[in-house]
Amino acid sequence: MTCEHSGSLLHGYLDGELGPVLAAEFERHLESCSQCIAQLEEQESLRSSLRAAKLYERAPAGLKMKIKRQIANTEADDEQWSWVPIWRWMGASAAIVALMTMSYFAAQRMLTARSGVQEAVLTEMIDAHVRSLQPGHLTDVLSTDQHTVKPWFDGKLDYVPAVKDLAENGFPLVGGRLDVLNGRSVAVLVYGRRKHFINVFVWPETGKESPVPASGSRNGYQWNYSRAHGMEICAISDVNAADLHDLSELLQE
């Protein structure tokens, strides 16, 4: 039998990618799990033998020279061809791929340019969502009863989020959890949707600026941000945008 944490989580820890809260939690787990300790040691020794083997292969000097030369020629080429359809020899498909690549980067850049803070909060939220899907990390209080989940937050935060069970609307309440967002502890409500989970971050309004764009998707995760009753609410999940929007409306009621 293997410990459930010896999977992904152990590797996130090994790579220093868990974040302080989760890393501390995992260290606590290590105190009582000899299996994970052994696996961690084995992985560390695998890593050091990989390092010792010096498997990194640098580009040969000849290749670097060839590249330099070809790039110099590419420029000359382009100058010469600049007044004829330059895509002709690349083929239409290559042109489309190029355009798509460029617009992809342009879109990414626009998103990033909007605000560094938005970017950071969004990344944190997506990371938190992904982490929550690791075994044993979804909820701190597991209950489908809103009257159990709501009091659980009492005393853990300086506010109490509204907790509704929306099972009748197809979003059963799964439980609640504390998470850290933008340097503060926030309440997270977990809802189910068919076989998927939706994390709903709830915190008191902090200002007029919204910390994330109203909605969008990245790496296959969707988010939907709204405000209601003095709270900021952000739902995040891999369910489709329409479902997420529905949930968001229900939460605002």
Binding site: G7, S8, L9, L10, H11, G12, D15, E17, Q43, L46, I126, D127, V130, R131, L133, N219, G220, Y221
Partner: peptide, 13 residues
């Protein structure tokens, strides 16, 4: 997704 990076690494190692 980042979660997939972690699980792929785990499997690969």
């Amino acid at each position: 997704p980042i979660g997939t990076v972690m699980s792929t690494l785990a499997r690969a190692r």
